[in-house]
Design a protein around this nucleic acid. Sequence first.
DNA 1: TTGCTAACCTAATCACCTC
DNA 2: GAGGTGATTAGGTTAGCAA
Length: 170
Amino acid sequence: MAKNNSPHKTTARNHRQSRTKFTEDQLNILIKAFNQTPYPGDATKEKLALEINTEESRIQIWFQNRRARHQVQKRSKPEKHLEASQDQDHPEEKIHGRADRRCRTSYTSSQLHTLITAFTKNPYPGINSREQLAKEIGVPESRVQIWFQNRRSRFYVQKKGELDEPLEQK
DNA sequence: TTGCTAACCTAATCACCTC
DNA sequence: GAGGTGATTAGGTTAGCAA
């Protein structure tokens, strides 16, 4: 599936967010939460963020990575997994998680104008640019990151469509 | 140098809103 | 319903850091 084959991938990593180092206590809390549900809802993520004093976006990333590693381990050792897992695939949590989605952010035309202008200058803003943009339009940095992800995706799909068009006409 | 893992990416999909 | 778009997911890559 996803490959980092973008021509922008070098600029994308100019300014990453600095690596978070979770303490043992923080990890214990996260692992416990993961065992309860690998698909926490927005409220749970907020609660965890407060509990371990970090940003909600860090919680989201941690759960993403944890699920990924969990899947890899499951494939390599189907009978015996991570220490963290009681593991029944938690389908019900997944459904519950969806019910507890973050509220949809609706951007004003001026916010969108700012974002689009930034996107045309650089579709892969680093952490500093994202934070600056977030401050400027008054939304969390994580929302700016999501907006750029979606924008890039749809931009590539659109471009691909434009390239395919002449072939279809033939 | 290597293994682990946070940060980040794309692609697909879901969910909600507007027309 | 269709189209647009924000949110979430899986699964892959990149890069920082400890051993």
